[in-house]
Amino acid sequence: MEIIKFLNALPGACAQGLIWGIMAIGVYITYKVLDLADLTVDGTMSTGGAVCVIMMLQGYSAGFSLLAAVGAGMLAGLATGILHTVMGIPAILSGILTQLGLYSINLRIMGGRANQSIGVDQYELLVSLRWVKDVPFYKNPIFVVGIFVVLLIAVLYWFFGTELGCSIRATGCNANMSRAQGINTDISKILGLVISNGIVAFSSGLFAQYQGFADVNAGRGAIVIGLAAVIIGQVIFGKIRGNFAFKLLSVVFGSIIYYLVLQVVLKLGLEPNDLKLLSAVVVAVFLAIPYLKGKYFAKPVKRGGATNA
């Protein structure tokens, strides 16, 4: 019976993993492309849902409400970007400041309540966890979110190939060189943060619809889950040489795997309350492995290796 219960939980885990995979793509843009750890996402992951649900409760369509959520997320990214570049506050601290401020803002958005629910029967939702099984495939959240993921990756692949996108990549890679080549690195960083947080808020909006409520604590630890997805994707698919789109896709798969593993762990008897600790440990271990490998298990370079001058 346990096995069947577990199998029953898998589609839900996949759907959830896909939605959070979108968030992980946002994290990837700041953490990997811009080389900047942005903690704003913990706040934005609540903001998007709050804006989306409140807008829908006011009678706006699901699509428009999602767009508004993206806009709100972008504003949050803009705030962090300005704190970091114009005000000269270190990136991590800028993110923490915005995130903290967002907590109050999120409560304001939700009318002072810690959560706001939205019924799947009264409102036209795009995704819901009720539709994971026994619905036509086009209503299944895995299908719907899957389409969003493909579209998002296509747009980002195109964008980071444009002049503007290339200048953001260059900024993350080598800021000195970028300035010497006439790139305004402040603008690049702000733009990257805006895009990233817009994507996170989009994911947040979808997740609120999926769950049927927005929660002021929905984003707590989001950055760690995002990092976990990025790292798992890198560990499993890193050996395959792929282009930028493939890397983004591997992040999404990383997220799905993360949620599948969580299901397994829950079935093994861990309490849901322990999950955050587990996430933290997983990320810490995977971040530490490359460092420890290099420090204690470095293979000595053979003498007479290739000389390249």
Partner: peptide, 17 residues
């Protein structure tokens, strides 16, 4: 090289290379 070629120009949504 493509980054260098665009030094001093306004970078927008044209192809990066």
């Amino acid at each position: 090289l493509a980054l260098a070629l665009r030094r001093g120009t306004f970078r927008f949504l044209k192809s990066g290379i």
